[in-house]
Design a protein around this nucleic acid. Structure first.
Length: 300
DNA sequence: CGAGTTTGACCGGCGC
DNA sequence: GCGCCGGTCAAACTCG
């Protein structure tokens, strides 16, 4: 990871070593290193995911989430049999989809939100835009259930139901039906490689501060990696890293320092994986360097 | 004025 | 067949 490998003694000082040889050569060298680092990280991630899938296929492993979708608004008991998710403010689960039926994939997500927030704020920030089309008070829950359709409907068939947990009103239970046939796109930051970020900074912008979730979902090469900061509210000093590859769930408690490190690594990895981004960045830097040289702003 | 939300009405599945 | 209930529709309303 360090940039100083085999490099110039003055590297940490700034741009000077860039011009110990031709700028283009140096950029090429940096790009080559980034590519190698990228390949190394990709292999490491593959190894992690392979282990994750092996773990998930373990028939003895208790599932935190296999239950009928309609019973999803009761949340307390589910955390008990899934200790690994106990510190996560948002947990993603996949219903046991019978292979014989082509039913839309159903997932249940629990998100912590302010207990005193209005139900309007139940539009869980998940990186997609939703349009509310109905609300209903159900029999087993005094809190109204809101019905959302993906804003890309009818081309995108995904629906979402959001309802407060009857046992813990600070928890929202969102049930997703189907899978998006498009990339996430919201007012939140959307990176060039399908990387979406949502932050609670929306509070300052006047949005209802109902939801705490601050998550980053990185979609790289078909995998989704979600880094969830929300549990800081639950347990000071503890954050969680949720990696729901292929719709499954793996969560591990990490320290805030470790979390920040993982977060930075994931962002760097995704950007490095994005050939278009690397090429664009390289071209931009090269063009600027060439301009500087031509303008005589750089001593050679 | 258009887009999004709200909310009462309506529909269909299911159990009795 | 009837009533209950979850899900959806669509007109009215709100907001930028």
């Amino acid at each position: 990871m360090d940039d100083g490998d085999g490099g110039s003694p003055t590297n940490s000082a700034g741009l000077l070593p860039l011009f110990s040889r031709s700028p283009v050569e140096d950029l090429e060298e940096k790009l080559r290193r980034a590519t190698e680092e990228n390949a190394r990280l990709t292999r490491a991630l593959d190894a992690i995911l392979a282990g994750h899938h092996a773990h998930h296929r373990d028939p003895g492993a208790p599932s935190a989430t296999t239950r009928a979708p309609n019973a999803s608004t009761s949340c307390a008991a589910r955390d008990d049999d899934a200790p690994v998710t106990a510190t996560a403010a948002a947990a993603v689960s996949t219903a046991p989809a019978p292979k014989a039926e082509p039913r839309p994939k159903i997932r249940t997500v629990r998100v912590r939100a302010d207990a005193d927030a209005n139900s309007v704020a139940e539009n869980v920030k998940d990186g997609y835009q939703w349009r509310k089309y109905g609300q209903k008070v159900t029999r087993d829950n005094p809190y109204p259930r809101a019905y959302f359709r993906c804003a890309f409907a009818p081309s995108c068939p995904v629906k979402k139901k959001v309802q407060r947990c009857v046992e813990d009103r600070s928890m929202l239970v969102a049930t997703y039906e189907g899978e998006h046939n498009h990339v996430a796109q919201t007012t939140e930051f959307v990176g060039g490689s399908g990387c979406t970020m949502s932050q609670p900074a929306q509070h300052a912008a006047g949005s209802p501060p109902a939801l705490h979730p601050c998550s980053i979902s990185i979609n790289s090469s078909g995998r989704t990696i979600t880094l969830d900061l929300t549990s800081q509210q639950l347990e000071p000093g503890g954050s969680s890293c949720v990696v729901p590859g292929d719709g499954d769930l793996v969560a591990a408690a990490v320290s805030p320092e470790e979390f920040r490190r993982l977060l930075a690594e994931e962002v760097v990895q995704v950007l490095r994986n994005d050939a278009e981004f690397v090429e664009t960045l390289t071209n931009a830097v090269a063009a600027r360097v060439v301009d500087k040289i031509r303008a005589g702003h750089v001593d050679l």
